[in-house]
Nucleic acid binder design. Structure first.
Length: 246
DNA sequence: TGCCATGTTAAACT
DNA sequence: GAGTTTAACATGGC
């Protein structure tokens, strides 16, 4: 579920089913003020990075699926204890499980910077570049996961992007040549769209070149798995093909 | 079977 | 108070 493209898919499925519809009942164990949602109409459904946003007239329901979140439509498929939020409409019921639910008051456009979302048509590569320049000492494996810079990028996308541009995960931002920095920013977006396409085709895993893989598809040597940086997430990489600039 | 993970937050530490 | 580490969430794949 969790990386940005998966949220886009959920948005595309849910949006046409509930946009313009009124919330007739709210339940679940989410720690939110449910009364606030009662009888409100869904204005639109959006995604920002890994956030699913159900936008109402005066507030927004923000769903974050974390690591194990899921949802279902019309039938409750999980036990009550994991049912965070149930939204009932006249003909539809949407269930969200094991996720983080928050109500964001006010205008959504003043809360989210759509230009930071790698999957948004408003994505702004130049702005991302400026943010990178301000973080010269950060490792590239950390900054790719930074949702302020690359909203929607998760650990799989991180690994695949770095492999694609032949850059070592432990490289400092300040050491990356300008041309490689450009491809980093471009591929963070491009790979996310490839991820989206493959996920829709149910062929995502088949297309992984490095994530959870054992051997480099380019040189055939064994891939390494290490935990780098502040984020300490798994990095799969080829020590031979991915360059660590200094 | 048991471990680990596509993620984030907040509490508990140093 | 800053920075770092751990726990919590609770499921599913290998």
């Amino acid at each position: 579920m969790p990386e940005g493209p998966s949220i886009v898919i959920i948005k595309e499925i849910i949006s046409p089913q509930i946009t313009g519809k009124k919330i007739l009942n709210v339940s679940g164990n989410a720690k939110i003020d449910m009364a606030q949602l009662f009888n409100k109409k869904v204005d639109r459904v959006e995604s920002w990075g890994k956030h699913l946003l159900i936008i109402l007239s005066d507030c927004t329901i923000r769903i974050h699926f974390l690591m194990f979140g899921s949802y279902s439509i019309d039938e409750q498929t999980k036990p009550d204890k994991s049912l965070r939020l149930k939204l009932e409409f006249s003909k539809k019921r949407i269930y969200f499980y094991t996720c983080s639910v928050k109500i964001l008051p006010g205008d959504i456009d003043s809360i989210y910077d759509w230009q930071a979302d790698v999957l948004s048509e408003k994505w702004n590569a130049a702005k991302a570049r400026k943010k990178l320049k301000q973080r010269p000492d950060d490792l590239v494996c950390d900054i790719l996961l930074d949702q302020e810079v690359f909203a929607g990028v998760g650990n799989i996308i991180k690994n695949e992007v770095l492999y694609r541009i032949k850059l070592h995960p432990e490289t400092r931002i300040s050491s990356i040549p300008p041309r490689i920095l450009s491809s980093l920013i471009n591929e963070a977006r491009n790979y996310s769209f490839d991820f989206l396409k493959w996920k829709k085709e149910f062929t995502l895993k088949k297309h992984w070149l490095v994530h959870t893989k054992k051997f480099c598809s380019s040189c055939g040597r064994p891939l390494l798995k290490k935990y780098f940086g502040k984020t300490k997430r798994r990095s799969f990489f080829c020590d031979n093909c991915q360059i660590k600039y200094k």
